[in-house]
Amino acid sequence: MGFDIDRLRSRVGRRDPDSGADDVRTDGGTEATTGGSRFARLKHSDLVQSLPFWLPPALLMGLFVYGAIGWNLLISLTDWSGLQQPEYTDLSLEMYTQMPADASFVAAFRNTVVLLVVFTVISLLIGLGLAILIDRNIRFENTFRTIYLLPMALSFVVTAIFWSWMYNPSTGTINVILRGVGLDFLAMNWLGDTRTRLAAIIFALTWQFSGYAMVVYLAGLRAIPDSHYEAAKVDGAGSLRMYWRVIIPQLSAATTSAAVVLMVFALKAFDFIYVMFGDNPGRSADILAVMMFRVAFSRSQWAYGAAVATILFLMALSVVAPYLYMQYKRGDL
């Protein structure tokens, strides 16, 4: 191999006083080892030393999360119902194949998707709006933020009770206000009427969770350097235009993570509907989470309930898996 002085010179010239930390330092690389006592090495390896810390929590969590998911899948393949114990001998996909023909499943599935999409989109929009308002150097910023986020700290049980009262057809706040501003024709029995029931639920849930989207967007906005706002201003972009063209495109990461979490909230919206309507909110507002509970715990159709639960799990997975994969690819894990 020839010796290249220029290369040497450039290498020597590259020594700058602050670059000393660039030395190869990798974490936990495996290496081919020869010699030495394998046992001693093993005993002091970081893996072995780390086990007592993460293994017990991992086992507890693994049993309750992954063990239970597997068991649930198994139960869904049986025909278990009623009071006796499940039999795991005769497994079939029967519970799943009967779903398409079950009108209540189809309705619950459709409502779940509608809730998921509409609730998420509206919450994101409101959250973005709140974040933009709050990010404009206002006074009492903390107070405003605290108030917008407050519903998030409340139990579904509590908010369901509040909103039942809000939607009360005669003296509920919603109708009182509608009548007060002369929109009498809009005042209706929001929760009683099957046409408005799902919309009313979505509206209330949006009230509860838009503050979450606000927090995520606010963090996103604060991460954008001031120079971008200034550059947009120098380029003559108006406020609206600036947000549309310059700022919002930079919030895509915030949007993704907020959307994923909101969708998962929506899939979990059981408590809210259960408190408002009990275990049977009717076709118009039934969702899979409620249906699963009704089928399994009220009617003791355990296997069918488990199958509905599996569908719910797969829906969550289809939202979360791509997100986690993206995070992994970006090296954020």
Partner: peptide
């Protein structure tokens, strides 16, 4: 120079 392995040796 940077990356020559001196820190790794020390570590």
């Amino acid at each position: 120079p940077s990356g020559c392995g001196k820190s790794t040796t020390l570590r």
